[in-house]
């Protein structure tokens, strides 16, 4: 993994703000995952699965955010749309899965 990211090509810094928004989202996933894992290890083992999913999604998004930033920079330079639906769909699916599994644990246990 190259440590240095390309400089933002847009003077409005939209690409960098979007990168930071992905990073904050990754941190939110990891923070929620940590809270769920803490609860799983103290008194609700059923929360282990959503906890691991949250942590794993956070870690994956932190790495993907960098690739996404490079992709956005490239798209801006060549003047193409920087949209990536699969990434949006995957992040939504992960958040929904964590929410649903926590809901099931609270309603059943």
């Amino acid at each position: 993994m190259e440590p240095e990211l390309p400089p933002p090509p847009d003077s409005g810094l939209q690409s960098e703000r979007t990168y930071l928004a992905w990073l904050r989202t990754a941190l939110s996933f990891a923070g929620l995952g940590a809270l769920l894992l803490h609860s799983a290890l103290s008194d609700r083992p059923a929360l282990l699965a959503p906890g691991i999913l949250g942590m794993a999604t956070g870690a994956a998004l932190a790495v993907i955010a960098r690739q996404r930033y490079r992709m956005v920079v490239g798209a801006v330079i060549v003047g193409r749309s920087p949209v990536d639906h699969r990434l949006v769909a995957a992040a939504s699916a992960a958040a929904t899965a964590v929410g649903l599994s926590a809901l099931v644990v609270f309603l059943i246990g």
């Binding site: 929620l32 769920l36 926590a102 609270f106």
Partner: peptide, 12 residues
């Protein structure tokens, strides 16, 4: 998405 995650953390 972060709002959803924050509400989820609040609920947990």
């Amino acid at each position: 998405v972060r709002t959803a995650l924050a509400l989820l953390a609040g609920g947990v």
